[in-house]
Design a protein around this nucleic acid. Structure first.
Lengths: 133, 133
DNA sequence: CGTACAACCTCTAGCGACTGGAGGTTCAAG
DNA sequence: CTTGAACCTCCAGTCGCTAGAGGTTGTACG
């Protein structure tokens, strides 16, 4: 009733070396081993890996994921902390979107102003060469 | 009429080790040296460093920057290539914004649906644990 | 002209979050 | 019992720097 690392990998979409890496950094507890020292994962371990993958997909940092994982193991605690981590991450995402949007604006401006002639007249090159962007 | 690496650093806002790193990866040509093997940069070198910094600020990849730099040195070429690189980068930025926006939506949903009770009932934890996000 | 010391030099290692390979062992199906 | 896919560990590489050790050079001041 348990899974080899390759099965765990297929079930979660996390690559085999990455699962081992997660174990190495202490994100995932070391699983039981066979006599030949091969890892054998239980359903809960696979669930934890799925949790990690979803959190990674949502862009949470490893430290946050470790904390969320720990919190999820204690179902009777208040989820205030969970909320806090998520909100913090949300504002970080907002910040990144804002930054990329500003950057996008600048790129669009450069491309729009480009007269498509010689490099010597190119607004893109000109902007990049300018004293201050 | 030339600059030590520290002066080049101050003029461009690029840290000293980073300038050396750029030289190491071939992004910036190796400058002249004093008899004691210290680097001496000319105005053009400093201009190139400024160019690099602006391109980095706009999120261009190193490979793109190398190409843009090369293109900027030949002012009579068509700026078609410049345009192409910029547009490619722009669509990458768009892609990243779209991804972050989708992610943001999901985070907001999770936080909104959270009843702020026990972890066991927390929608955030539930979503992260789900088979497919 | 001598000296102090800031700034320079090279080399190496480290970051985060993996990814890939070499070289060797184990599991499980046939 | 054999075969070979999957596993094991360890090490190196990715990207774009950053930091440190330990040693040398440039320059300003007396």
């Amino acid at each position: 009733m348990d899974y080899a690392i390759g099965e765990a990998s297929r079930l979660t979409g996390i690559k085999v070396p990455t699962i081992r890496y997660y174990e190495g950094i202490g994100l995932l507890a070391a699983p039981a081993r066979t006599e030949g020292r091969q890892r054998r994962y239980r359903v809960e371990d696979v669930a934890r890996l799925n949790f990690i993958r979803h959190a990674r997909d949502l862009g949470f940092e490893m430290a946050d994921i470790a904390e969320l994982l720990a919190l999820s193991e204690g179902p009777d605690q208040s989820c205030k902390k969970v909320d806090e981590i998520t909100r913090r991450h949300l504002s970080e995402v907002d910040r990144r979107i804002a930054q990329l949007t500003a950057l996008r604006r600048e790129l669009v401006r450069m491309v729009d102003e480009c007269s498509h002639g010689r490099v010597g007249d190119c607004r893109v090159i000109e902007t990049l060469s300018g004293e201050t962007a």
